[in-house]
Computed example of a mutant assay.
Amino acid sequence: MSDRAADIHAIRDVVALYCRGIDRLDFDLVRQAYHDDGIDHHTGFDGNVDEYLSWVTKSLEYLSGTMHFIGNHHVDFVGQDTAISETYVMATHWGRPGSGPRANFTTGARYVDLMERRAGRWAIAERWAVREWTRPDAFIAPEQPGPRGTRDADDPLSVLMKRFGL
């Protein structure tokens, strides 16, 4: 794999790490996606990464879950250790029972990220979560019993990773 291909893979992995952290409420993973002095711009929020983590933690408390899907991803390099990453994202949010219709929605967005490699590690220096559209959703109970995602140590991914000491 060429150096640039490895860089692109590492940058995309930062975006995937962020999404996993948000969906599983693992804010240590979310924090790892940013440099210590990272900045975030979301709908309803502008500030540094620590302020963002406090804000997003409170924002997600009233939801039962989220699921982020990563789509198109493109990286433009601006020097050896700086890149602009654009990632298309669809994120579904569902509220707790009785939380009202505004808690249930899918949104289409783009993560426009200024990525920097520092000390050999790619991470977000500044992010713009550009919301393109939002659609209200109606959620129904699953039709059959089976594995369900949770936002704690009982999630199948967490159970499997713990089994192997990860």
Score class of each variant (00 low, 15 high):
15 V>Y: 02
75 V>R: 00
160 L>N: 01
133 W>S: 05
160 L>F: 15
92 T>Q: 03
49 V>T: 10
107 T>M: 14
161 M>S: 09
147 P>L: 15
99 S>T: 12
151 R>A: 08
82 T>Q: 08
129 A>I: 08
143 E>F: 15
62 Y>W: 12
37 D>C: 13
124 I>A: 02
117 R>N: 07
118 R>C: 13
165 G>I: 13
61 E>K: 12
12 R>F: 03
160 L>D: 08
108 G>Q: 07
78 V>Y: 12
146 G>N: 08
126 E>M: 06
156 P>L: 05
30 V>P: 00
118 R>Y: 13
92 T>A: 13
19 C>P: 00
84 I>K: 06
96 R>T: 09
166 L>A: 10
139 F>P: 00
26 D>H: 13
100 G>N: 03
15 V>G: 02
103 A>F: 14
103 A>C: 13
61 E>W: 12
8 I>R: 06
104 N>E: 02
27 F>H: 06
111 Y>F: 15
10 A>N: 10
52 Y>Q: 01
49 V>E: 03
28 D>A: 15
66 T>E: 02
67 M>D: 05
122 W>D: 07
143 E>R: 09
125 A>I: 08
89 V>T: 05
158 S>C: 04
1 M>E: 05
55 W>C: 07
74 H>S: 05
136 P>A: 14
6 A>L: 10
35 H>T: 11
99 S>C: 12
151 R>F: 06
63 L>K: 01
16 A>M: 08
124 I>Q: 01
52 Y>R: 00
60 L>T: 08
166 L>G: 15
101 P>M: 12
3 D>N: 11
31 R>S: 10
45 F>C: 03
116 E>Q: 14
45 F>H: 08
76 D>K: 09
40 D>K: 07
33 A>Q: 04
142 P>Q: 10
142 P>I: 00
141 A>S: 08
140 I>Y: 13
9 H>L: 15
114 L>M: 10
76 D>Q: 11
7 D>N: 04
3 D>L: 14
10 A>D: 14
62 Y>F: 15
127 R>F: 07
85 S>A: 14
71 G>T: 12
125 A>D: 09
20 R>I: 15
65 G>D: 02
23 D>N: 04
93 H>L: 12
35 H>E: 03
84 I>P: 01
100 G>T: 03
141 A>V: 11
136 P>Y: 14
38 G>E: 04
63 L>V: 09
43 T>Q: 07
110 R>Q: 08
55 W>I: 02
153 A>T: 09
56 V>L: 00
11 I>E: 00
35 H>P: 02
164 F>H: 14
18 Y>P: 02
103 A>V: 11
25 L>R: 12
87 T>G: 04
113 D>Q: 08
25 L>I: 08
123 A>E: 05
102 R>N: 07
119 A>R: 04
107 T>G: 11
165 G>L: 15
115 M>A: 11
68 H>S: 06
95 G>I: 06
